[in-house]
């Protein structure tokens, strides 16, 4: 009786380990690149996939410099703000500069989103935009239908 219980417990443990191992291995094995995910998720053809690759590459080249600009602008804002006791014209200008870069970035992002959406099947464009738009639009807790 006790031997049967031990055997049963061991088998159960083995089954649990098997499930965990299967989950871990499949999580690793089924991973893909961001572009592969996009093509799979929206059922794109190889030609459309190539177009996406070009779009993504252009987007990276266009938006990459914004990161450096934003880092510089933020560092400048920090320096100016720490050296001031009130909102001086310099502080205001530094804030405006960070907002300007942020706005340019958001516009570039939106252009890219629309370019990608235009390549997707018509019925999937809205779903794609709903997924990516929160990256450019600050959430205020509203839910889209």
């Amino acid at each position: 009786m006790i031997l049967e219980m031990k055997k049963g417990l061991l088998i159960l443990l083995g089954i649990v380990l098997l499930a965990v191992a299967a989950q871990q291995i499949s999580t690793c094995c089924f991973r893909s690149t961001p572009l592969q995910w996009l093509c799979h998720e929206y059922g794109l053809s190889p030609q459309q996939a190539e177009r996406m690759k070009v779009l993504q590459s252009e987007y990276g080249a266009r938006c990459g410099p914004f990161c450096d600009q934003m880092c510089e602008a933020n560092a400048n804002l920090e320096t100016v703000a720490l050296g001031s006791g009130s909102v001086t014209p310099e502080v205001r200008a530094a804030v405006v500069e960070t907002d300007r870069i942020r706005t340019e970035t958001r516009i570039a992002m939106l252009r890219h989103f629309y370019a990608v959406a235009a390549e997707l099947p018509a019925e999937k464009r809205r779903a794609y935009l709903l997924k990516v738009l929160p990256l450019t639009i600050d959430s205020c807790g509203m839910q889209h239908p």
Partner: peptide, 29 residues
């Protein structure tokens, strides 16, 4: 059942991670 359940769960998790990776790739910062 454990094998299929594990693979199913792993597939869902990997797809969610891929989606997250794609969204992060769109963020210039």
């Amino acid at each position: 059942l454990a094998l299929f359940g594990g693979v199913f769960l792993g597939t869902i998790q990997s797809r969610a991670a891929d989606e997250d990776q794609y969204l992060r790739s769109l963020n210039p910062y």
